[in-house]
C-alpha cells in the first residue's frame, strides 16, 4: 500500500493530468481493488502522466464505452418509434432492430462492469440527434428521424466512431484479460454494424464501401467536429514496435492485381485494410455533438 500512496500523491501533483482525466484518485483506488494484476499497468502509466493518452484509467475507458453505447441505443430506439414508412422496408426496420438490441446489451454490460468495480454511475446524458443541443443552435441533421438517408448517415458516423473509439481504448485495459476481451468483442460487433449501415447506404445510391475507404463520399463537412471521426482514417502508414515503418510504399509485394494498380490506388487499399484508432478526447468530442 505504501507505493499506492506514493502514486496517489504523484497524481495529485500532476494538475494537467487531473484536468484531463477527472477523478484519478478514485480510479486508482479501483485499480487497487482489482488486485495486483493492475499494479504494473499503473506503474507503466505513470512515467508520462502529462500525456493524455497515458493517463486514462479503467473507469475512463468503461465510462466512454457506456456513453457511446447509451448514445447509440437511444438513437436507434428513437428511430424504431417511427412508422414503417420511415424505414421503407421491413428488412431495413429489422436491421435497425437487430443493431438496437446489441447496443442495449452493450449498455447493460458496461453498466454492470462499472457497478461491479464500485464506480458511481453518471446520469444518462440527454441526447438530441438533430445536433441542435435541444434548440440552442442550428440543427446539423434536422431531418434525422424523417429522412432515412439522413438517419443512415448519422448511423454511419456513430458506428464508425464507435469502432475507432474502442480501438483507441484497448491499450488501457490490456492488463485485464476479461475487460479487454469484452471490449474487443463489442468492438467487432460495432464494425459489423458499421459495415451493414454502409452496405445499406450504398444500395440506396451513396458512394461508400462497406469498409472505410478514401473513395467514400465524405459525410461530414471539412473542418467540422463530425469530420474528426474520419481524420487519419486514410493513413497508409503503419509502424511496428521500435518505430519500424512497414514499407508498403516501396517494398512489400502487395500490388498483385493484373495489370498492377497505380501507387495511389494500392495505397488506398492499404488505408482500407487498417482501421485507425481515435483517442478518447476526440471520440468524446464527436459524441458530444448529440449531447446537451
Amino acid at each position: 500500500m505504501h507505493f499506492l500512496k506514493l502514486l496517489a500523491r504523484l497524481a495529485e501533483t500532476d494538475t494537467e493530468s487531473l484536468t484531463l482525466t477527472g477523478p484519478r484518485r478514485t480510479a486508482l483506488r479501483r485499480l487497487a481493488q482489482a488486485g495486483t494484476a493492475a499494479l504494473p499497468a499503473v506503474l507503466t502509466a505513470l512515467p508520462q502522466p502529462a500525456v493524455a493518452r497515458d493517463s486514462r484509467t479503467v473507469q475512463d475507458v468503461l465510462k466512454l464505452a457506456l456513453t457511446l453505447e447509451q448514445l447509440e441505443n437511444a438513437f436507434y430506439t428513437q428511430a424504431l418509434q417511427q412508422p414503417l414508412s420511415f424505414f421503407g422496408t421491413t428488412e431495413n426496420q429489422a436491421a435497425i432492430q437487430t443493431i438496437q438490441g446489441h447496443e442495449q446489451q452493450h449498455v447493460a454490460l458496461f453498466t454492470r462492469l462499472l457497478v461491479n468495480a464500485g464506480a458511481t454511475l453518471d446520469l444518462t446524458p440527454r441526447f438530441d440527434f438533430t445536433g441542435s443541443k435541444n434548440g440552442a443552435q442550428a440543427a446539423l441533421y434536422p431531418d434525422v428521424f424523417t429522412n432515412f438517408d439522413t438517419f443512415l448517415r448519422v448511423a454511419q458516423l456513430l458506428e464508425d466512431t464507435g469502432v475507432r473509439a474502442y480501438k483507441g481504448q484497448v491499450e488501457y485495459i490490456q492488463f485485464d484479460n476479461f475487460l479487454l476481451e469484452s471490449a474487443v468483442r463489442a468492438h467487432s460487433v460495432e464494425a459489423r454494424h458499421a459495415s451493414h449501415i454502409r452496405t445499406m447506404r450504398r444500395q440506396r445510391g451513396a458512394t461508400v464501401k462497406s469498409w472505410v475507404s478514401p473513395s467514400d463520399a465524405p459525410i461530414a463537412t471539412t473542418g467540422s467536429v463530425a469530420a474528426k471521426a474520419y481524420a487519419g482514417e486514410d493513413s497508409f502508414t503503419q509502424y511496428l514496435a521500435g518505430n519500424n515503418l512497414v514499407p508498403f510504399v516501396d517494398n512489400l509485394p502487395i500490388n498483385v492485381a493484373k495489370p498492377p494498380l497505380s501507387q495511389a490506388a494500392i495505397l488506398a487499399k492499404v488505408a482500407e485494410a487498417f482501421d485507425e484508432p481515435l483517442d478518447g478526447l476526440t471520440a468524446t468530442e464527436v459524441v458530444s455533438l448529440f449531447i446537451y
Partner: peptide, 24 residues
C-alpha cells in the same frame, strides 16, 4: 506487446466489416 495489440485491433475490425458484408 502493446504495439502488436493495437495493430491486431486495426485489422480485426476490417475483418469484421468483411464478415458482415459477405454474410449480408
Amino acid at each position: 506487446d502493446v504495439t502488436s495489440l493495437r495493430l491486431l485491433a486495426k485489422i480485426a475490425s476490417v475483418e469484421a466489416r468483411h464478415a458482415a458484408f459477405v454474410r449480408d
